[in-house]
């Protein structure tokens, strides 16, 4: 095993090395996080007070900056009062891995505190539905439009300049408008996902359609294909695998609009959970929720990638998928 084989340009790694590196890519950040959390002399800028002593405003469990604590300690020592004591701690917004792990588990098992509140999985499910409908609505219009833009120059000309302009407008800027038109519940949230996805989608799909080898269209023409057959029997099947990959990427973008979308109108879904927990300073719950979004995103993408391989068997033949 020569070390150079690890870094040969554009040479595939052995499956074993690939698996090892995949594991490492998650393990290394976790290791860094654990190191900062569990090694008292690394960072830990605060002191968590275990014994208030004679300092009037100290309370047990309270956190204070190290410099301020030392100042108070010196003052008490000089004044001869009882000395405060404490342990070094990280700020409350950086909980340790095990705390987040516990929060991750308990967030599913803890009943909502008020009747109006939802279980975490209900919040998540609500978020997934918002994404789903926003993305589906966008795709129903955006994908056909993109294909037409990529196929017919006339459609592209009357369509794309405006789309190019519109895609620079930040989707959240339409929040107030969306609320005015669609009310305060799910409508405006779906609308934001839609706006955030749609305009990119038209351009990406149009571009993918243009990448299709023109000689395939020419071959079809010499085989007597008419315009309709060109579109449905050559263009669409020809771009399908790439279109599928585009949709996966666009779905990822849709997720990035989720948090902003859910803040519009009545806050809901996973965003409501996160903002609520941050307000109570339960940062381990906030982390748990963020990680959960990541896991859902990653798992759905891996599932879609696997599905793609079985959907397009001719891609497997050439090892492109």
């Amino acid at each position: 095993m020569s070390s150079s084989a690890w870094f040969a340009p554009r040479v595939a790694l052995s499956p074993r090395r690939e698996r090892a590196l995949t594991a490492l890519s998650f393990f290394l950040p976790l290791l860094l996080w654990a190191t900062v959390s569990y090694t008292p002399f690394i960072w830990h800028p605060n002191i968590e007070i275990t014994e208030p002593g004679s300092v009037s405003y100290f309370q047990q469990g309270m956190q204070i900056e190290r410099a301020a604590f030392n100042e108070e300690l010196e003052r008490q020592r000089a004044a001869g009062g009882s000395l405060p004591d404490g342990v070094r701690a990280n700020p409350v917004y950086l909980p340790a891995p095990h705390e987040v792990a516990i929060a991750f588990y308990t967030s599913f098992t803890t009943e909502p505190q008020r009747r109006s509140e939802q279980w975490l999985h209900q919040s998540l499910w609500h978020s997934i539905q918002i994404i789903f409908w926003g993305f589906i609505l966008s795709s129903v219009v955006g994908v056909p439009l993109g294909i037409l833009c990529g196929t017919f120059a006339a459609v592209s000309r009357i369509q794309e300049p405006f789309v190019e302009f519109f895609r620079y407008l930040p989707a959240p800027a339409f929040g107030a408008l969306a609320v005015a038109i669609l009310g305060i519940y799910d409508g405006p949230k779906i609308a934001i996902i839609f706006i955030g996805t749609f305009f990119q989608q038209v351009l990406v799909v149009a571009n993918t359609t243009r990448q299709l080898d023109i000689s395939l269209l020419e071959a079809a023409l010499t085989l007597g294909a008419n315009r309709r057959q060109l579109l449905f029997k050559v263009v669409i099947p020809g771009i399908l695998p790439q279109l599928y990959r585009d949709q996966r990427i666009l779905l990822g973008w849709a997720w990035t609009y989720l948090i902003v979308a859910e803040l519009i109108g009545t806050s809901s879904g996973i965003t409501w959970f996160i903002t609520q927990q941050a307000r109570y300073q339960n940062f381990e719950n906030v982390f748990a929720a963020i990680i959960m979004i990541g896991i859902i995103g990653l798992l759905s993408d891996v599932a879609l990638a696997k599905l793609g391989k079985s959907l397009f068997p001719w891609e497997r033949a050439s090892n492109k998928a």
């Binding site: 000689s215 395939l216 085989l223 050559v234 099947p237 001719w314």
Partner: peptide, 26 residues
């Protein structure tokens, strides 16, 4: 273009999403 003039190109213009038989059936 029309089916009365068949064409074979230098680049392979087979439809990659169709099997050999489906290509010939096109």
């Amino acid at each position: 273009p029309g089916p009365d003039r068949g064409m074979v190109f230098q680049g392979y213009t087979l439809f990659p999403w169709l099997t050999v038989k489906k290509n010939v059936m096109f």
